[in-house]
């Protein structure tokens, strides 16, 4: 079917499959519509339709608190259409689809599942095709038997790859979490839609980078470090990473982070912020290339960065309260312009 998307500045005609999320149909055909989470939580993708033209598949999505249903408002990422229709999208479309990379659907299978901590697992998806993505991007993942999609940020980075790596923190009782941690997901089929997201790293910007992650928010930061290291970024520019976890038993990727520090030859600093625990005496000797501090990650960032923000580009990812607290620090203390702050709120 055909969906006519009207925005203030431009109209788009979009081919949409039966059962396909309207947002996904629009994005893969190149219409740069507003969205953030692509999975029903943020409300950013709201639009209007005539009564009966679209159907929401998740009435109680957290993002629907931003809707006025009496005005025909709906979330494009949670809704489908069953006949040709017209929708109205408020606001300006984004300037571009990140890197000009249009998202698409790819099938794959889960492999290499391994536990990184007591409640964090890593796995790869071996794709049937290949995907090109920018460091910092994510995909929407779907498995059989699970309602809706889940957003997961890629950990790895290559210009084009048939393998996507992820880390997932267990959410007790969560649908994907149960499937991943309690089921037998090895070699199970998955569908991914991506790449998605605008919190992307571009080496040609040529600026220092400041990365602040809470928990599994380190995923996209690892991808940014992989790309920046490969691009020789740290020969000219500095990088600082603040990685917040509860305690020492929650730290993962120490080896990989230490390796990035070594390869950056003094221009990359990684600090692990422990929110619930004093730094044990053994931490520094066990991980000599990493720094440790006690405190919430946004406060540790504030203390350590002090007046050294310069004109860095900042990347922030993690649970929404952690991201909001960090954005405040970057705006008030770092005086960073909005264009230099990129974030993903995981929920």
């Amino acid at each position: 079917m055909k969906i006519t998307v009207r925005t203030k500045h431009q109209n788009y005609t979009v081919a949409c499959n039966e059962g396909e999320r309207i947002l996904y149909a629009a994005l893969r055909s190149g219409a740069p519509l507003p969205y953030e989470c692509a999975t029903g939580t943020c409300g950013t993708c709201k639009a209007r339709a005539r009564p009966g033209d679209v159907r929401s598949h998740w009435q109680s999505a957290p993002g629907s608190s931003y809707l006025k249903p009496e005005r025909g408002e709906f979330l494009m990422c949670q809704s489908t259409a069953h006949a040709d229709c017209e929708i109205l999208v408020p606001g300006k479309p984004a300037a571009e689809v990140a890197g000009g990379l249009l998202p698409e659907y790819l099938k794959g299978a889960l492999c290499d599942l391994r536990m990184l901590t007591h409640d964090v697992a890593a796995f790869d998806v071996k794709l049937d095709g290949t995907m090109a993505f920018r460091a910092g991007q994510f995909v929407a993942v779907r498995t059989a038997g699970l309602e809706g999609y889940r957003a997961y940020s890629m950990v790895n980075h290559d210009e084009r790859t048939d393998r996507l790596s992820f880390v997932v923190k267990r959410l007790p009782g969560g649908g994907f979490s149960n499937w991943l941690f309690d089921g037998s997901p090895q070699n199970q089929p998955l569908e991914v839609f991506g790449p998605l997201g605008r919190a992307t790293y571009d080496p040609s910007e040529g600026k220092d980078i400041l990365c602040i992650a809470g928990g599994s928010g380190i995923a996209g930061i690892m991808s940014i470090l992989a790309h920046s290291t490969r691009a020789g970024h740290f020969e000219q520019h500095r990088g600082r990473v603040f990685f917040g976890v509860r305690g020492m038993r929650d730290v993962f990727f120490h080896e990989e982070l230490s390796d990035f520090v070594t390869r950056a030859g003094g221009n990359l600093e990684v600090t692990i912020a422990l929110s619930d625990e004093e730094v044990p005496a053994s931490a520094q000797s066990d991980y000599p290339r990493l720094g440790f501090a006690t405190g919430m990650v946004h406060l540790v960032t504030s203390e350590r960065m002090s007046d050294q923000y310069g004109d860095a580009v900042a990347f922030v990812a993690g649970p929404p309260p952690m991201v909001d607290g960090t954005l405040r620090v970057l705006i008030v203390e770092g005086r960073l312009p909005a264009s230099s702050i990129r974030y993903d709120k995981f929920g």
């Binding site: 953030e36 409300g43 950013t44 709201k46 931003y66 606001g91 909001d324 954005l327 405040r328 705006i331 008030v332 005086r335 909005a338 702050i341």
Partner: peptide, 26 residues
């Protein structure tokens, strides 16, 4: 003015600029 987020919570003041931390409108 964007999505009706309550600015008392989402707003940050700095250097004469107000920023809404929902989508960084300023």
């Amino acid at each position: 003015p964007h999505m009706e987020e309550p600015l008392e919570q989402s707003g940050v003041c700095s250097g004469g600029l107000l920023t809404c931390t929902k989508h960084l409108w300023q």
